[in-house]
Amino acid sequence: DTINITLPDGKTLTLTVTPEFTVKELAEEIARRLGLSPEDIKDTHNGKTLDPSLTLAEYGITPGSTITLEIK
């Protein structure tokens, strides 16, 4: 299953994830792909900052969802 990550420059990154991924694991994968530190990444969905300890499923993030990435 894939989700879309909207980057600060407007580009989109597509990642393969499972509903059990935590937001922290997602940030780590994004950081790895972009050459950043996971601590520099802030993920938001529907205007809410995502708690790193919760899973994508707990936020109702499903395949095809879009998450907005902010760099701290």
Rank of each mutant, 00 (worst) to 15 (best):
D40P: 12
N4R: 11
E20F: 10
T68E: 11
E39P: 14
L13S: 02
A27Q: 13
L13G: 01
L34D: 00
I30G: 00
I61W: 11
E39M: 15
T18G: 09
G47H: 07
T22D: 01
E20W: 12
T62D: 05
E70W: 06
L50K: 03
D51A: 03
L36W: 12
L7E: 01
E28D: 10
T66N: 10
A57P: 03
R33H: 14
E58A: 08
S53P: 02
V17N: 01
S53F: 07
R32P: 00
A27N: 15
D9L: 04
T66P: 02
G60F: 04
K72N: 13
L56G: 01
P52E: 11
D51N: 06
K48W: 10
I3R: 00
L34V: 05
A31K: 05
I5A: 02
G10I: 01
T12W: 09
K24E: 04
E20T: 13
K11D: 10
E70S: 07
R33G: 04
N4H: 11
T66A: 04
I3H: 01
P38G: 07
D51Y: 04
I3G: 00
E39R: 09
K42T: 13
T68Q: 13
G64E: 03
G10A: 02
T66S: 09
P38K: 07
E70F: 08
L7Q: 02
L36G: 07
P63Y: 04
F21P: 00
E25W: 06
K48T: 15
I71N: 05
T6C: 13
L36K: 08
N46E: 09
L50N: 03
P38M: 13
K72W: 11
Y59P: 00
S37D: 12
T44W: 09
Y59D: 02
K48N: 14
P63M: 08
D1T: 14
Y59G: 04
I41C: 05
T68W: 13
L56E: 00
E25T: 04
G64T: 02
A27S: 12
A31T: 05
N46Y: 10
I5W: 01
K11F: 13
E28P: 00
L56Y: 01
D1Y: 15
K48C: 15
D9I: 02
I41W: 08
T18R: 08
R32V: 06
L34M: 07
G35T: 03
D40Q: 13
L36T: 10
T49V: 15
G10S: 03
T16Q: 13
T6Q: 14
L34Q: 02
T14P: 03
S37V: 12
L56W: 02
T55Y: 03
L26E: 00
E39T: 15
E39S: 15
A57F: 11
L13T: 04
D43H: 15
T62Y: 14
N46V: 08
T55L: 04
A31C: 09
P8C: 10
P8S: 12
K42P: 14
E58K: 03
F21H: 06
K11Y: 12
L7H: 02
S37L: 11
I5Q: 00
